[in-house]
């Protein structure tokens, strides 16, 4: 009785109606309006084909990959408050996170495991999109965007791997970037490197590390790539990816 009164008062107020422009009584019109007039929900069309609703059709893999990205952004921003990307402080800050930051360990664990989960999920997502033939016309280009997103996901994970500045990260990145030095023509250890006058101090590996070995410059470069460049690039491509799903006819279903 009084609850009804209060809720009526609230929903009829100017503030409420400035936010929600329609009623919530269960009519098909309102179901459509809720999706269309909500910024976050309007990635979705008002209605979707029932095939796409079956859990076994998508296993939510793409959506969960995106959710992992959101978890990474949130925990990543929190971690940035406690981390300095220099050889002097990076490892110390990791230890401080463990010992003097409340929930610091859980925060770091969340960031690490969500990153692994994101890589696994994006791989599985690609497998399911392949198996359901969802890359076929008219969805070809969105598959290409998806492949770039897969690569960006791996690079995001790889650049983050160096930041703790422990033995594991240092040697993993040393091993990983050594392969870059083997690039034909552009790497100092690669075939045909002398054609372009490539040396260890001007090859692609040097470009990536800012040095001939993993050190201060590499740490800073990986940090900036990890926190700014790659997340921005991934965000832009994700927007394109989601937009194209709609433009290419929604989640695939048999015709």
């Amino acid at each position: 009785m009084t609850m009804n009164r209060i809720s009526e008062k609230v929903t009829k107020s100017q503030i409420w109606r400035s936010i929600f422009r329609h009623r919530f009584s269960d009519t098909s019109r309102n179901r459509v309006l809720t999706v269309v007039s909500n910024f976050f929900l309007h990635v979705h069309p008002p209605k979707v084909h029932r095939t796409g609703l079956r859990i076994t059709h998508t296993f939510c893999l793409g959506g969960l990959t995106f959710y992992m990205f959101i978890v990474e952004v949130v925990t990543g921003v929190l971690l940035m408050f406690y981390y300095r990307p220099t050889v002097e402080y990076a490892y110390l800050d990791m230890r401080l996170l463990e010992h003097s930051v409340k929930f610091g360990v859980v925060m770091r664990n969340l960031h690490r495991w969500a990153a692994h989960a994101m890589v696994i999920l994006v791989m599985m997502h690609m497998l399911r999109v392949f198996l359901t033939g969802s890359y076929k016309p008219p969805r070809e280009f969105n598959w290409v965007v998806g492949v770039v997103l897969l690569v960006l996901t791996l690079l995001l994970s790889f650049t983050g791997y160096l930041l703790p500045w422990d033995q594991l990260s240092f040697w993993a990145i040393t091993v990983g970037t050594r392969m870059g030095g083997a690039t034909p023509f552009l790497g100092a250890d690669g075939p045909f490197h002398s054609v372009l006058g490539i040396r260890p101090d001007n090859d692609v590996r040097y470009l990536l590390l800012g040095d001939t070995a993993v050190g201060e410059n590499a740490l800073l470069r990986f940090y900036v790539l990890h926190c700014i460049f790659l997340p921005l690039a991934a965000t832009v491509l994700m927007l394109v990816h989601f937009w194209r799903i709609r433009k290419d006819g929604g989640i695939s279903h048999p015709l």
Binding site: Y91, W113, L168, A172, G176
Partner: peptide, 21 residues
């Protein structure tokens, strides 16, 4: 999440493995 001793260019890990992916 793993955290080993501080990075040391003079102490090679054996085996030195890239990230799992």
């Amino acid at each position: 999440a793993p955290l080993r001793s501080i990075a040391d260019a003079n102490k090679t890990e054996n085996p030195a493995k890239a990230p799992w992916y």
